[in-house]
Simulated scan of single mutants.
Amino acid sequence: MEREKVELFKEVLKKLHKGEDVESLKKQFGELLSQIPPFEIPVIEQELLKSGEIDVRDIIKMCDLHVEFFRGAVSEAGREIEKLPNGHPLRTLYEENKQILKDAEALSLLASSMFSLPKDDPRRKQFYEKLVQHVSELHRIGLTHYTREEMLIFPYIERRGITAVPTVLWSKHDETRLKIRLLLNLLKKEESDERLKEEALELSRMLSDMVFRENNILYPTLKVLLTEGEWKAIKMLEKDIGYYKIEVTEEWETPEKPLLPHRNCLRRPIPFRGLGGSRHVYHLQIQ
């Protein structure tokens, strides 16, 4: 790995600590950073984390900058993933993200439309009911899409010594889960229009940004790192958790044997606490 890339990241982080705004950093470093392949980003971050020069909170800040630096700069990554056959776990995640992005945009549209209407407008009731229904459905993103990544994908990354990426993304997932729960509670309490609109638009942005991070940074990294045997193991286990609003076909096949991230994964119970506080346990196993 080129030493200059690591030093460049350090310089950006120092400026970020000093409060320099994203637009200024984009002008100074955007062109150089956009030349770094997406799959090298996690390795650079991990090197900085191991050296003790930054902590996870710093990387979370850097993760936010990725969205700005790489928006449009790595658009080719999505096209490469679309070349994978239907049913490949990575293609499935990518297809789910299309639905998540669609739902994020729908949330923004619903909120903007509802809160632009006068309070005595009879259409507000219809918008309100639809908004509550829509936000209620969004919690399934955490139960399916995010949980598959956390329980089935992240262990393979950690196995390679890359711990910063799963830590940061899991943190982002939890922030989104909490925001969904908060918005739903505020809707039920009929909070002020201003607060509801603000929270709805923020949630829409969070969902969209996560789609960008995954499609253009995480997924190209996984495409390079994971083997066919590892994808086969993920494929065999993912049905136990479920999918977000898509039908998964079985076109993809591989002759490779399933390779689990750890030998003790066989029949390993996976606990997961849902947004409502209930406990779900997925007994994942390979026959």
Rank of each mutant, 00 (worst) to 15 (best):
M1H: 04
M1G: 13
V6E: 14
V6F: 01
E7S: 10
F9V: 13
K10L: 10
K14Q: 11
K15F: 02
H17P: 01
E20Y: 10
E23Y: 15
K26W: 14
K27S: 04
F29P: 08
F29S: 13
E31K: 13
L32W: 02
S34Q: 10
P38H: 05
P38F: 03
E40G: 00
E47K: 14
S51V: 02
I54P: 01
I59R: 12
I59Q: 11
I60S: 07
K61Y: 02
D64K: 06
H66S: 14
H66V: 07
F69W: 05
F70H: 07
R71F: 13
R71P: 02
G72S: 07
A73V: 10
V74L: 12
V74C: 06
E76S: 07
A77P: 00
G78H: 00
E80F: 14
I81V: 10
K83I: 00
P85D: 08
P85S: 04
H88S: 03
P89A: 08
K98R: 14
Q99A: 05
A104L: 02
A106G: 04
F115M: 00
S116E: 15
L117W: 06
L117M: 09
P118Y: 07
K119Q: 15
D120P: 15
P122C: 15
P122I: 11
P122Y: 00
R123C: 07
R124H: 03
F127C: 04
Y128G: 01
Q133P: 09
Q133G: 07
S136Y: 10
E137C: 12
E137L: 08
R140P: 06
I141F: 12
I141M: 03
L143D: 14
L143V: 12
L143A: 04
R148L: 07
E149D: 03
E150D: 12
P155W: 06
I157L: 03
A164E: 03
T167F: 06
T167N: 11
T167L: 03
V168G: 00
W170A: 04
W170S: 05
E175I: 07
T176C: 12
R177P: 04
K179I: 11
I180V: 14
L184M: 11
L184P: 01
L186Y: 02
K189V: 09
E190D: 06
D193Q: 01
E198T: 11
E199S: 10
L203W: 00
S204A: 14
R205C: 05
D209G: 06
V211C: 15
V211F: 12
V211E: 09
I217F: 07
I217Q: 00
L218H: 01
Y219E: 13
L222M: 13
V224K: 11
K232I: 09
K232W: 03
K235I: 09
L237S: 05
L237G: 03
E238D: 12
I241T: 07
I241F: 09
Y244E: 06
E247N: 11
V248E: 02
V248K: 14
T249G: 09
T249H: 07
E253A: 04
T254L: 06
E256R: 01
K257W: 11
K257R: 14
H262P: 03
H262K: 13
N264F: 01
C265M: 03
P269C: 08
F272R: 08
G274A: 10
L275I: 14
H280Q: 12
Y282L: 09
L284G: 11
Q285C: 04
